[in-house]
């Protein structure tokens, strides 16, 4: 289809030109950081978190993060809704064999520890609720892939997810009552670099991690928990 090829070439050339123009305007390598510089200056003393990315994510932009969490929740719910329920008579996949199941058994505790470490140390090292949550979901899903006869408890996942989301909002409401602002970091800051420091940031991080992990694990289990295609 020559007409279509010409159209797509014109389209991509236009896109390229547009992006190049935008790029010429950007001061690559020398951004004028207005908000960013202020965050960098203030975040350490104010929130007591060594990792400024997590400090912004949960501290200054906690409300934003709540919105992101609800988008993720809506997407996961809609996906489960569209996929529908599994038929009762559908056959399951056979278990994955010795190598796969032994590897999964070996990998599961490792992934679990790494995920929990990343969630809990979010305010000190790179990491936080989102990254750790994804790794936690992967840990549970690897076990499920190796042995499809095992199933994740969807009711339990729903409870974890709901409680984590409620905890996030409750911490925010507590700050609202205490300080007058939703999701303001509370609690004493402690010394920077210790595990128990930075006030409520680690708590929010754990809530995010549990919610993201439960959501994605449930979603993956739902996608995997499939009838074999009948065609």
């Amino acid at each position: 289809m020559p007409m279509r090829d010409i159209a797509s070439l014109v389209f991509s050339a236009g896109l390229l030109f547009l992006l190049l123009v935008i790029g010429a305007e950007l001061a690559l390598g020398h951004p004028d950081m207005r908000v960013g510089a202020e965050y960098l200056r203030v975040a350490g003393p104010e929130l007591g978190a060594a990792n400024i990315v997590t400090a912004i994510l949960a501290g200054y932009r906690g409300f934003d993060t709540l919105g992101e969490l609800s988008i993720l929740f809506a997407a996961a719910t809609a996906a489960s809704l569209v996929l529908g329920h599994r038929r009762a008579d559908a056959r399951r996949d056979p278990p994955g064999g010795l190598v796969l199941s032994a590897g999964a058994d070996l990998l599961f505790p490792l992934l679990l520890v790494v995920g929990i470490f990343i969630v809990v140390h979010g305010h000190l090292t790179p990491g936080g609720g989102f990254q750790g949550g994804v790794i936690l979901a992967a840990a549970f899903f690897v076990a499920l892939l190796a042995n499809p006869a095992r199933t994740l408890n969807h009711a339990l996942l729903g409870w974890i997810e709901g409680l984590a989301g409620a905890a996030f909002i409750l911490i925010g409401l507590w700050a609202l009552v205490e300080d007058g602002h939703f999701l303001t970091p509370l609690l004493p800051l402690g010394t920077m670099g210790e595990l128990v420091s930075a006030g409520t940031l680690p708590l929010l991080s754990v809530a995010i991690g549990l919610k993201v992990g439960a959501e994605l694990a449930g979603l993956l289990a739902h996608l995997a928990d499939t009838e074999a295609p009948d065609r």
């Binding site: 790179p126 990491g127 990254q131 994804v134 979901a137 992967a138 993956l220």
Partner: peptide, 14 residues
């Protein structure tokens, strides 16, 4: 590093 960690877990895995 934060974004790299997320991208490695999400983009290359999940």
């Amino acid at each position: 590093p934060d974004v790299a960690m997320t991208e490695a877990a999400v983009g290359a895995g999940l």
